[in-house]
């Protein structure tokens, strides 16, 4: 554990909490892509299956359980409890275009052709693109609430901090995992346009609005 990984994890946790609290307090999931949240639930489920087979640490188990439970809670709020506020007309990204290529790629490029390993690899590939339905929704409506922007910033920062963690581990521990690194770079790059708008607009108190 190093400072980059810890802040990355905390940033990830913060993002998930921001989203849950936002939906709960406003009793609305307007502006939130249910499809991205479904993909994240799929990502955590397929990645953390090792919960039942391998014990790593109390921290690890605790965080995995939080991520799984929070993602299902978010999906429940969007598709069940606050279904009436769900923006399904704008949430039209075709998720099969993300799920199927991620799955095929995980069959082709993995560390070991074993069920748990392929599901782990699939989750890494799918996570790298799982935010696309959300970014697509923001681009379709042309704007995002500030709280949604904070959520996206925290979620995007998490993988960026993991990249620093991997650079650190490469030098400090001679450890690296190309699958995670390449997917992490892709994931972080997808947020770059948003990061730019966040810094230039949201941090200056303006609403995130895309140029017409």
């Amino acid at each position: 554990m190093n400072i980059f990984r810890l802040t990355g994890d905390l940033s990830h946790l913060l993002a998930i909490i921001i989203l849950l609290v936002k939906i709960w307090k406003t009793r609305s999931c307007a502006g939130i892509s249910g499809k991205s949240q479904l993909l994240f639930a799929l990502v955590y489920t397929t990645r953390y299956l090792d919960l039942v087979s391998t014990y790593i640490s109390a921290y690890n188990t605790f965080m995995k359980l939080i991520f799984i439970c929070a993602s299902y809670a978010t999906v429940y709020l969007i598709y069940m409890k606050f279904k009436a506020t769900y923006d399904h007309n704008h949430d039209t990204f075709r998720v099969e275009f993300l799920i199927l290529p991620s799955f095929v790629l995980s069959l082709l490029i993995n560390h070991d052709f074993a069920v748990l390993e392929i599901l782990w690899t699939f989750s890494i590939y799918l996570e790298s693109v799982a935010i696309l339905p959300q970014l697509f929704l923001v681009s379709k409506t042309g704007e995002a609430e500030s709280i949604t922007s904070h959520y996206l910033f925290a979620l995007g920062s998490y993988r960026g901090l993991y990249l620093l963690n991997w650079i650190y581990r490469y030098y400090a521990e001679s450890h690296y995992d190309l699958i995670a690194i390449v997917a992490g770079v892709v994931q972080t790059v997808l947020y770059c346009d948003f990061f730019y708008l966040y810094v230039t607009k949201v941090l200056k108190g303006k609403k995130l609005q895309l140029p017409a």
Partner: peptide
């Protein structure tokens, strides 16, 4: 192996 170390990450 290298990838099992990455598994302790989230």
């Amino acid at each position: 192996t290298s990838h099992s170390q990455t598994k302790d990450e989230l």
